[in-house]
Amino acid sequence: MEAMVASAVGVLTAAGLYLVLRLRTFPVIIGLSLLTYAVNVFLFGSGGLVVNEPPIWHEHDNSYTDPLPQALVLTAIVISFGMTAVSVVIALAAYLSGDDDSINMTPGEAEDDAP
């Protein structure tokens, strides 16, 4: 079970990293999403993998999964939406104003833009 989740995290990371290393904004955003999944699952896994014992408190029942990573990951998921949305709007604005969605500055451009 652990190997399954760990390998899934590894594959998501690898695919995410590869996409982040692409030269256009859209694949990079998709890559960031994949990395977000990987990080969230990784954090979630820090509490251990437990099947069918949700962190709902019941009297006389002492088997729960770890609630803390879940709480942390829950907010992380929502925040990651905010992050994706902001990066998408930046990408879109860059493309609409520059007619180019490549993610890197071309050599020399950095100096030209300097104030």
Binding site: E2, A3, V5, A6, S7, V9, G10, V11, L12, T13, A14, A15, G16, L17, Y18, L21, R22, A38, V41, F42, G45, S46, G48, L49
Partner: peptide
């Protein structure tokens, strides 16, 4: 080259994740 970086990174994170899980 990018693929290599990505695979090595993925392997590393996967291994770390496994170590954490077990």
């Amino acid at each position: 080259r990018d693929g290599l970086i990505a695979v090595v990174g993925g392997l590393g994170v996967g291994a770390l994740s496994y170590a954490l899980l077990v």
